[in-house]
Design a protein around this nucleic acid. Structure first.
Lengths: 367, 367
DNA sequence: TCCGATTTGTTCGTATGTATG
DNA sequence: GCATACATACGAACAAATCGG
């Protein structure tokens, strides 16, 4: 955005999309906008002129400028259907599988699949939602960004609802919305990871959790519950939480610290996911700590990474492709029922996680 | 017609309609119009601005204002642009990175990105191309399916050209089309893989190539060239080629056969890509052949898999994200130049592969 | 019904930046 | 390098419509 007027356009458009300006509502006068943006009236008029031309606003001389009602604009004339898939990361890890599951189903039905990635960044999510709202999208499959925090973009979701665009959340969801969602029972997953280690006799179990996603928070909760159930005290040092931005450095650094301790060195690790488990494995190799003899480790997601290395990871199952396919089926049902009068009942699905035992865990002998 | 600018609009419009201004002809400059109508330049700009918005004229900075060809009106109403990305596999391997590179660039420009995967299957490719041709797609980034074979869907590509939908091929291309493409110099890559091993003293080098893609065929060619250059005879048994459908079984089985040989057992392996290298590594582990002491292995693509296992793979670089981003930039240029009269020159790019030496290769001592 | 404040509509003047040929 | 033509931006003035008192 180079020019001043395009900046004005951008801001006003996003106010329409996030619900600051609702249909038929009068927006600020040219004079007020001049002061707000510190530009001349001319510049404001150029910006508003363009928005009027694009159908976002309409002007009434003497009265003011008003927000247009774009709902009536959406002509269902086009028979082509368009589903948007929004994930945090396109390229990493299990997402390609989820996307593939959805794509193969949707593409076969002649749907178009549009892809967006937020990089787990709130501002990018905002931009994408604006994009979706201003284009012709019939349904959205979305993985929430930074789902553990309250989301400033929540209004965009309400706008989706107002425009009758159904959406389904995968992997996590924002509590406030109570959306239809497809999630793994992450708390149970974390519980299974930890209980498996406890049953093998481990008492000092370090847990690494990415806590800007609900997934991480819930897995940590399961980790704690397992300790409680088996009445094993938790050493606070053994819980390491990190954010997306820290993922390449903090967990590895913290593990090194733990290993160098003189007392209460952990004998087992619970990793937020397989990707992290592999990073931790690298640290363990450097420290010449053999897995599983000297250190047990449990991953999460049963991704291809779990079997990539020489140590085949014990991990927790994740439906991946199935989740994508299921989400696709559900969004199709919702979209089709939108165009008919029949109201289908589509309900959230919670996938049960399962422990997959491989060779990265072993019994802890009494010391 | 009260206002001055509407008088100007009226006159210019009638000049277009009566043929005074014919399509693509330059109309009088703003300065000339000022004098003619005896109004200020601003008034002229308001009038022309409205005519541009209605599609009667278009402006080109530095050149002038021109009469539009209203015959080509078709879908000029939609200012949203749509790029289709077609790859063989969405979820596998390096494609997520390519897609991500393209998505991040396109999405920022407000383009919509539609995703399709052919699973390297000709019939699916056909269905997808039909889909694309019947929907509003402004540009296509496509990885050819089974690029080593002649393609029965070639007509669909000609159809794209006929409909003025630009397309760019990545990773490989169909010779017949001579398209704009973005590829790695696979022959040189295969050459680098092999020469590296030869220089380390290896003489029995087995090569595994997926030969339904051009990539595999070219890498094999490089493998052969390296042998020729260093005057090392090739044992025919050492070349294993396979197709997409066989990839999960044949290479591993063939490697087992090679290992069990009594004479001329290979001391080094050239793998089609990192994914295959990892599968071969699993076979070597089973056979207790230590890498790199007893067996050297070179991958291709420098994917995350190259560093996932305990053995960090020596491999060949692949631009991945950069390739996706570059493809996105090029298709945008092509699409935008389509809507103007200016013809941009976009040329194919060949990426130079580089050898990345890690720990999966070592010197072969004279036996 | 009229008045005055507000808001958008039209017009002019001026200046600087940037792309084209 | 230069002239031409469009792009962006600011300031000022008056007209026309709306709305509340």
């Amino acid at each position: 955005m180079q020019t001043k007027y395009s900046k004005v356009i951008q801001v006003i458009k996003s106010r329409i999309l996030d619900g600051t300006y609702t249909p038929k509502q009068k927006i600020s006068s040219e004079n007020e906008l001049m002061k707000e943006f510190e530009v001349s009236r001319h510049t404001i008029r150029v910006a508003i002129g363009q928005l009027v031309n694009e159908g976002w606003l309409y002007r009434e001389q003497g009265a003011g400028t008003f927000c247009a009602d774009r709902k009536e604009n959406r002509n269902s004339s086009s028979n082509k259907r368009n589903i948007a898939i929004v994930t945090t990361f396109i390229s990493d890890y299990i997402f390609p599988s989820i996307i593939r599951g959805a794509e193969s189903y949707l593409s076969e039905l002649g749907y178009q699949v549009s892809l967006y990635s937020t990089n787990n960044d709130i501002d990018t999510e905002k931009r994408i939602l604006e994009n979706i709202l201003s284009q012709q999208v019939d349904g959205v499959i979305i993985e929430p960004t930074k789902s553990a925090y309250s989301n400033p973009n929540i209004n965009y979701y309400f706008n989706l609802e107002r425009m009758n665009i159904p959406y389904i959340m995968i992997n996590a969801f924002y509590d406030e919305l109570e959306p239809i969602c497809l999630v793994v029972d992450d708390e149970k997953g974390g519980f299974l990871q930890t209980e498996h280690l406890i049953k093998l006799g481990h008492k000092q179990i370090a847990g690494f959790f990415k806590t800007d996603d609900t997934q991480g928070v819930k897995r940590m909760k399961g980790y704690i519950k397992a300790h409680r159930k088996h009445q094993i005290p938790i050493n606070p040092k053994n819980i390491i939480s990190y954010s997306t931005e820290e993922k390449r450095t903090k967990p590895a650094a913290e593990l090194k610290k733990l290993i160098d301790l003189q007392t209460d060195v952990p004998t087992a690790l619970v990793a937020y996911n397989d990707e992290l488990a592999l990073m931790l494995l690298d640290v363990l190799r450097e420290s010449k700590l053999k897995v599983p003899q000297k250190m047990s480790i449990v991953g999460f997601d049963d991704s291809f990474l779990a079997q990539a290395s020489e140590i085949k990871l014990t991990t927790i199952s994740h439906p991946k492709m199935k989740m994508g396919e299921q989400a696709a089926k559900m969004i199709v049902e919702l979209v089709e029922s939108q165009h008919q009068s029949t109201k289908q009942l589509v309900e959230s699905v919670i996938f049960e996680p399962e422990l997959i035992v491989r060779h990265s865990t072993s019994e802890q002998k009494e010391s």
